[in-house]
Design a protein around this nucleic acid. Structure first.
Lengths: 203, 203
DNA sequence: CTTGCTACTGGACGTTCGATCAATTAGGCT
DNA sequence: AGCCTAATTGATCGAACGTCCAGTAGCAAG
């Protein structure tokens, strides 16, 4: 499908040139087609960018979810795999942050981009929330999925952004450790505001 | 000083128009001067943007530090004030995220921007690290300043970004709660990897 | 008053941008 | 083979971009 190829060319262009890569001419050059073809398959540039945003977000979530769910792991091991996958070399590529920054800067201006963001982030938090809840169950703790997912996703994103912006500040293994520590504290009952009020499940 | 006025106009332009605001013509229009004047005071556009980045980062840190240090508070109260100030309405203004996104997207391309980023973030982590260490001291716990500051700054940034991107997802008070919970867990010894190895200070 | 220097103006130049559209090619259906 | 639709091209348009520079205005020193 041509649309698929154009979306891929868009992502590659944004990786290479950042915001300057969001240009019909650059994208069409990378895709090896004429500039007019983009206007034929997408009404305008904004539609193409929004489609690329959705594509990237969904693909990333599927990668993370697949990596964490592989094999017959315990819930705690699946969270660890999710965290490790979030700081894998291919994800930490600073070029990829470029792409996200372009998308985020459009979220506040284009309603279509905001819709994509809200939808994909809700899914992201849903995945994280379920993972954390099942970990809590095996530890006899009732995790409140929503705030827990919000906190862990913020921690993951914040560490990932800083690692991309200046990779020398700390190492990916430190980022993994900081996330693991937070999960351990959650399971250990040290974050009581993130647990269901009332007694623990196995007293 | 004219340079000061041009930097302020740059920040206002980036707030209003995002990346499109980083244009000599828009900035000069907001400042009420001719386009040529910018090339007179700054060698080129990149120098102006870098100066604006440094100005914004330093001003923000001074605001946060002043708010947290006011009065004769206990260390724990100062951390709370720092966290609350990080989610104050004026900071949460989505327009301000626009400005940071533009700067971050340039960090990976312009060495001068990378230098500004590294310098200001080191200062930011230093402030946070000292605050957390002094809190730990009053609780009989020896906090490792560096990883603790990295984690809390990532949590603050991640929550702040998501709040700016879609303010309806959760409320600022929830963000404050999540950060406070993390600090409580740290002080309570629930994040052992973030403490100095060995015994607690008051056993 | 003249000289010299700095702040400042605004137009010119060459690029690049997004969108448009008439013209051309390709491919399946009858 | 003939035809119709869809895919694709590339030129063209006006607008906006960064930089440059010749020129004006203001002012302090001689």
């Amino acid at each position: 499908m041509r649309r698929r190829a154009l979306i891929d060319a868009t992502l590659r262009s944004l990786e290479r040139h950042g915001r300057d890569g969001a240009s019909i001419r650059r994208i069409s050059a990378i895709a090896g087609v004429s500039s007019g073809l983009i206007s034929h398959h997408f009404r305008n540039k904004a539609k193409l960018i929004a489609a690329a945003y959705e594509s990237l977000a969904i693909e990333l979530q599927e990668t993370l979810y697949r990596d964490s769910g592989a094999g017959d792991r315990s819930p705690r091991e699946r969270v660890s795999a999710f965290i490790r996958a979030s700081f894998a070399p291919s994800i930490l590529e600073p070029r990829i942050l470029n792409v996200w920054l372009v998308f985020w800067s459009m979220v506040m201006r284009a309603p279509a981009m905001r819709a994509v963001h809200d939808r994909t982030y809700r899914r992201y938090r849903s995945i994280l929330g379920k993972l954390l809840q099942s970990v809590g169950r095996t530890r006899g703790v009732r995790v409140r999925a929503r705030p827990a997912a919000i906190a862990l996703s913020a921690l993951l994103d914040g560490l990932w952004i800083e690692l991309c912006l200046s990779p020398g500040t700390f190492r990916p293994t430190e980022a993994v450790m900081l996330c693991e520590s937070w999960v351990d504290a959650l399971c250990g009952g040290a974050l009581p505001q993130l647990l269901q009020p009332g007694r623990r499940r196995s007293p």
